[in-house]
Design a protein around this nucleic acid. Structure first.
Length: 559
RNA sequence: GCGCCUGUAGCUCAGUUGGAUAGAGCAACAGCCUUCUAAGUUGUGGGCCACAGGUUCGAAUCCUGUCAGGCGCGCCA
């Protein structure tokens, strides 16, 4: 059975059947176009577990005071074992209070399902392709890439938990002018090291890592280098070596960050296979391409773009856009139901033209572009500007070195993707003892500690031998309700592609547990009470663990 | 000039798709450990939700305009 408890769904079913019954018995007028019963979580406990504004919304339609409509509906609701009581309050809200015994029964799913609690399977799972980071292979990954990595990986995990099949993909831009320029920069450094005459390209890459690459090439491939005479050959070789070096390093950085890809897709492969020119032909056959002064342009203005975009230069070389369209055409042909790209903030102007191209190719699935907004790295109150060309950027590996994988991932995931975020490196490090990450992990470690102690004392655990009355205290009830919301949080985060919801949820769960822990001793002389509390604590442990794993954050059993 | 994103407590940010008295963490102040982990907990203070209109039973949320900040506006990738 693949059923997870869901407050809103149950409330919705109860309410809609009450409405139907009320209409059937003439308590509410028929032949009226009723809106759907909307269910919300009220902010305050006194307003119930769930709440509906149905009577407020229909008051005008029915020409009746909301309170009266609420009172009518209440009569048709009350006989459900899920529900403890129904209240109709002030302006006309219908507030529903769930029965604790029922909720405890529902919570038994958690320890039974264990690792699979919060995960669901679909009859028809969507095949999803998620492309993220895709930084140019011209240097080490920076902080924005780190953000995209943490969020992209977590979105993928959340979609998987929600029953979809996800492929994580990295697009390697190993083609074009930038690559050539990188090769020239490396070659110049090689000659410098050898003490030869060298001319460093004007717009070249000045970062220190270019010297590392040069040294690496000299050390391992000086024979290959020596066998090449022509400048062009030397350049190409340097480019190739540099790309290989950088991609390898990016791969390592990402793996250190708990991010693994299913596919590293090379742009150059599209040029070699002829896909780029095939794409142009296909677009031409759809009549969205026209020629102008020897160039070929994509009519992207038909899709809301500011102007039409060149896809083929007058010398016959394709633009980056054409290759990117070819790349997306390839993804489309792989048959995904959903294609998601996560891009940096400097590419938002590019969305319209690519969306247009995807439409022109008549893709039948869904295509989203998410923009990971910029990250300002703040050090002692000063914002550090990042620029690869100038070489004074902070790298992802430096960040991980400084604050660790868990903290870095959590800090990125806890904020929504669109927020421009100030990342205070000094603070993240300095505060590490009072960090939300440690707060979360501490809750988990505390529970593990309880179980270690229980084992030491030889306590026999049996979750069939619990007594509901022990779980009806204020702190216990809060925990039970929080635990039961986990599957809904996953579903919601999956739908909106917002992992920060999970981060916030877990923090709240940890908070409610810490309160429970402070107020109640789990291991006592009362065997049934102990069992009841162990059952509750174990459920919390499972949710915390499942949630943290989803975020790619470790779950230490001791701290 | 045009486009995208942002503007909520001293700071960093949430706000369940339009709901009831706007929240959390950090920072500040005051309490709580002979007990399973005090990396914890309880309480206090802190707000013109950038501003002005509009939409309706109801707006931080939707629409219009203004202001401020960031980014973009290549036949670079």
């Amino acid at each position: 059975m693949n059923y997870d408890f869901n407050f809103k769904e149950i409330t919705y079913k109860i309410l809609s059947s009450a409405v139907a019954k009320a209409i059937g018995e003439g308590a509410l007028p028929g032949g009226v176009d009723y809106p759907q019963c909307r269910v919300e979580y009220p902010k305050e406990q006194k307003f119930g577990d769930t709440s509906s504004s149905f009577s407020l919304e229909t008051a005008r339609l029915l020409r009746k005071p909301p309170m009266e409509i609420g009172a009518t509906l209440k009569e048709f609701i009350e006989k459900h074992n899920e529900i403890d009581k129904v209240e109709v309050v002030k302006p006309g809200f219908i507030n529903i209070f769930f029965s604790i015994d029922y909720l405890i029964e529902m919570m038994k799913e958690v320890t039974i399902k264990d690792f699979s609690f919060g995960r669901c399977t679909k009859e028809k799972p969507r095949r999803v392709n998620l492309e993220f980071v895709s930084a140019n292979p011209t240097g080490p990954l920076n902080i924005v890439s780190a953000r995209a990595a943490a969020i992209g990986d977590t979105i993928a995990s959340i979609l998987e938990a929600n029953g979809d099949i996800v492929e994580r993909e990295f697009y390697v831009n190993d083609y074009g002018n930038q690559v050539e320029l990188l090769g020239k920069s490396v070659l110049a450094r090689i000659r410098e090291i050898r003490g030869e005459d060298s001319h460093f390209p004007e717009d070249g890459y000045h970062g220190a890592y270019v010297r590392d690459i040069a040294a690496h090439v000299l050390e391992n491939f000086s024979e290959d280098l020596g066998s090449r005479m022509l400048e062009k050959e030397l350049n190409d070789f340097s480019s190739e070596m540099a790309i290989r070096f950088n991609v390898e390093r990016q791969k390592q950085d990402l793996e250190k960050f708990n991010v693994k890809y299913n596919c590293w897709f090379k742009e150059s492969s599209l040029h070699q296979s002829g896909d780029v020119s095939a794409t142009l032909k296909e677009l031409e056959s759809k009549n969205v391409i026209y020629s102008d002064e020897g160039k070929k342009l994509f009519r992207s203005t038909d899709y809301g773009d500011d102007k039409d975009r060149v896809v083929m230069r007058d010398d016959g070389r394709p633009t980056y856009l054409l290759a990117d369209i070819a790349y997306h055409r390839d993804k489309i042909r792989r048959g995904y139901d959903l294609i998601i790209d996560i891009w940096g903030p400097d590419h938002h102007g590019y969305i319209k033209r690519l969306e247009g191209a995807v439409k022109a190719l008549e893709y039948h699935g869904e295509f989203f572009v998410l923009i990971a907004q910029q990250v300002n790295l703040v050090l002692e109150g000063d914002t550090i500007k990042m620029s690869k060309r100038l070489g004074n950027f902070s790298t992802m590996s430096e960040l991980i070195e400084e604050i660790g994988v868990d903290v870095a991932r959590y800090f990125f995931i806890m904020r929504s993707l669109e927020s421009h975020l100030d990342f205070d490196l000094a603070l993240a490090k300095k505060e590490s003892s009072e960090n939300p990450v440690f707060y979360l992990q501490y809750a988990y470690a505390r529970i593990c500690s309880i179980f270690r102690e229980a084992e030491k004392r030889g306590i026999h655990r049996d979750y069939k031998d619990i007594e509901n009355e022990h779980l009806k205290g204020h702190e216990s009830v809060a925990l039970i309700k929080m635990i039961l919301k986990y599957p809904e949080e996953i579903a919601s985060a999956a739908e909106t592609l917002e992992p920060h919801k999970i981060a916030n949820y877990l923090l709240r769960l940890a908070q409610v547990f810490h309160r429970f822990y402070t107020e109640h001793r789990v291991l006592t002389d009362d065997a049934i009470k102990t069992n009841s509390y162990l059952f509750l604590s174990d459920s919390v442990r499972i949710v915390l663990r499942n949630g943290l794993r989803l975020l790619g954050i470790s779950t230490p059993e001791k701290m």
